[in-house]
Design a protein around this nucleic acid. Structure first.
Length: 280
DNA sequence: AATATTACCAACCGCCAGGGA
DNA sequence: ATCCCTGGCGGTTGGTAATAT
């Protein structure tokens, strides 16, 4: 006997989410909170599997999701954590506020695997000829200026960021010490990369991290997130019910109210943990 | 300019663990 | 103790944009 599916898939929408579905899901969760995923689609009037709703919310719609490319610092952290934790994406993501396990998994599978392979190849060649040092080539950090509020179009398709636009008022880029080739090689073998003179790095990282969260998730004015249930339900061919989404429900929709007070990246603590002898 | 290939990422799938009945 | 439900996780797939030929 096979396992019963999480929900009946008949008549359900599949594939990319539409902007309207996103609005409905967002509004519903804002009003009723997360959880009860199985019942959520029916109650929200969505023709989606509950699992799909959960995934969409966690990976895309959550207001504390950090959009934009992975920074070099995050990348280094991912690499180090992956070394320690393996493919425990949720654990890794838990140490990178605003990043989802899916995003990190994708990033690893598409980008870092190649770098890791290149590194190991480099390491092997280094062992054969120790004088040859191949530094890790890090791609230039790009800044995706398309915040969730920057556009009303909710992109659900894969988008590649190839053009970099840096706003004049943007904070100066992180002045991280670029690790020397030797340091990288050492880090390749042990989690001791961050030991030593990285106090300033961590300070900068912390500052940078706080910038991630000090912005206000632009509380949508009611009209922008207003969901026309009637129209949507008619489109779906389901009975119209009178769900009213009150505008005030969006008033406190910002990261300050959603994130915990200490949600800023405690990279220092993370690094200390990684470097501590107690870490397995 | 057209076509083929590659890169990327959102979404899906199946399995598993924890908790409640 | 057992069963069932729910939520969560990691692997994989499919679609599309970008790039190469």
């Amino acid at each position: 006997m096979g396992r019963s599916p999480c929900c009946s898939k008949e008549g359900l929408n599949r594939g990319a989410w539409t902007a309207l579905e996103d609005k409905i899901l967002t509004a519903y969760i804002k009003a009723h909170g997360e959880g009860k995923w199985r019942n959520l689609p029916k109650r929200a009037g969505l023709k989606r599997c509950g699992k799909s709703c959960r995934l969409r919310w966690l990976n895309y719609l959550r207001p504390d999701i950090k959009r934009g490319n992975i920074s070099n610092d995050e990348e280094e952290l991912i690499i180090r954590l992956h070394k320690l934790l393996g493919n425990r994406w949720s654990l890794i993501a838990g140490r990178l506020p605003g990043r989802t396990d899916n995003e990190i998994k994708n990033y690893w599978n598409t980008t870092l695997v190649k770098k890791a392979n290149a590194q190991s190849a480099s390491l092997q060649s280094k062992i054969k000829s120790p004088t040859k040092c191949r530094p890790i080539t890090t791609e230039p950090t790009t800044v995706d200026q398309s915040s969730p509020t920057a556009s009303r179009v909710i992109r659900t398709k894969a988008t590649r960021c190839t053009k970099v636009m840096i706003a004049l008022e943007s904070p100066p880029p992180l002045e991280l010490q670029v690790p020397t080739t030797n340091q990288l090689q050492v880090s390749d073998l042990s989690p001791a990369f961050c030991s030593g003179d990285d106090g300033q790095e961590l300070h900068n990282l912390e500052q940078d991290a706080s910038q991630f969260f000090n912005f206000n998730f632009q509380a949508s004015n009611g009209s922008e997130l207003q969901v026309d249930y009637d129209e949507y339900n008619q489109d779906l061919g389901i009975p119209v019910h009178s769900t009213t989404l009150e505008e005030p429900m969006f008033k406190e929709w910002n990261t300050d109210s959603i994130l915990e007070g200490n949600a800023t990246l405690d990279l220092e603590a993370i690094t200390s943990l990684l470097d501590s002898a107690e870490w397995p």
